[in-house]
Amino acid sequence: MLRAQIFTLYPEFFPGPLSKGLYGKAMSKKLWDLKVVNIRDYATDKHKTVDDTPYGGGSGMLMKPDVLAKSIDENVVKNERIFYLSPKGKLFDQNFAKDLSKEQSISLICGHFEGVDERILSTRKIEEISLGDFVLSGGETAAYVVLDSILRLLPGVLGNDQSTNDESFENGLLEYPQYTKPPIWEEKSVPDVLLSGDHAKIKDWRLSQSEAITRVRRPDLWEKYNKKN
């Protein structure tokens, strides 16, 4: 079972959509568990202050290291990997998700304001991860994405563990086009090869489609794919 922890200033955001559908069923089956930690509960002053101005000046506020550290120290178990969701972090991708799906427990810190005091990252060995080259108003939305990508890889969550094998990024390529009934819709037909029953030809068609789509839409992935093949 995966034990996930979310450190946030807005605990009411969770579990949110993670309690619905397949993930809700998986939680009830004890395939994973979620604990939500309200960082503000660990502030010691009467106003429950969690942020302060940055040394050296600048706009915005930073999360205080003492408050965040206390919330971490009282909840994180030994050897648990801790991640801070940050645009400065290592890019989170499918391979990263696979890696984390093998962990027994992970913690995600949802930032706000202008970020966190740098000292908390080094003293608590916190890894920074990013979803891409853009900025969000808080880490909660990013935490949903990270957990979603991990949970679907846990054995038993999707029902058919083979269903993730042909998805985008699994073989270094984007996924091929998919079709379902009816065979003709708005004068557009399903490609004949998919109706042929010839599994070898279907496999070749899907690979060629994946390669063509990746080459046009993601030249960075296409370059990596060519180097490996």
Rank of each mutant, 00 (worst) to 15 (best):
D133G: 13
S105Q: 09
V77L: 15
Y55D: 03
V190A: 02
F169S: 05
Y179A: 06
E127N: 13
L194S: 09
E114F: 03
V216S: 12
K188R: 09
K20I: 14
K35N: 15
D148K: 08
E140G: 01
F92I: 08
G159D: 02
K228M: 15
L62H: 01
S122V: 15
E114D: 04
T49W: 01
G132F: 03
K78I: 11
N38I: 12
V135L: 11
V36A: 08
D73E: 12
D220K: 03
L2A: 06
P17T: 04
D66N: 11
D33W: 08
E80P: 02
D52M: 00
V193L: 01
A26L: 10
D41G: 12
H47E: 05
D161L: 00
E118V: 14
E170G: 01
P11G: 13
W185Y: 15
N95A: 14
M27Y: 11
V145C: 10
S130Y: 02
E103G: 09
L194F: 15
N79V: 11
Q104A: 13
I120D: 00
L108A: 03
S137L: 14
K90E: 15
N226L: 14
E114T: 11
A200Q: 15
C110K: 06
G132C: 10
S210C: 07
Q178M: 10
H47M: 04
W222N: 06
E223D: 15
G197W: 07
D166G: 13
A143N: 07
K70G: 10
K125W: 09
N95P: 09
V37T: 12
N160M: 08
E187L: 09
Q5E: 14
R119W: 11
R124C: 07
S107I: 02
R217D: 08
I39M: 03
G197N: 10
L221H: 04
K125S: 15
I126Q: 00
F83N: 00
Q209F: 07
K201A: 14
E211Q: 13
I6W: 06
F134Y: 15
I109S: 04
K20V: 11
R217V: 12
D93T: 08
R215F: 13
V135K: 01
K46N: 13
P54M: 02
E118T: 14
L18S: 04
D45A: 06
F92T: 01
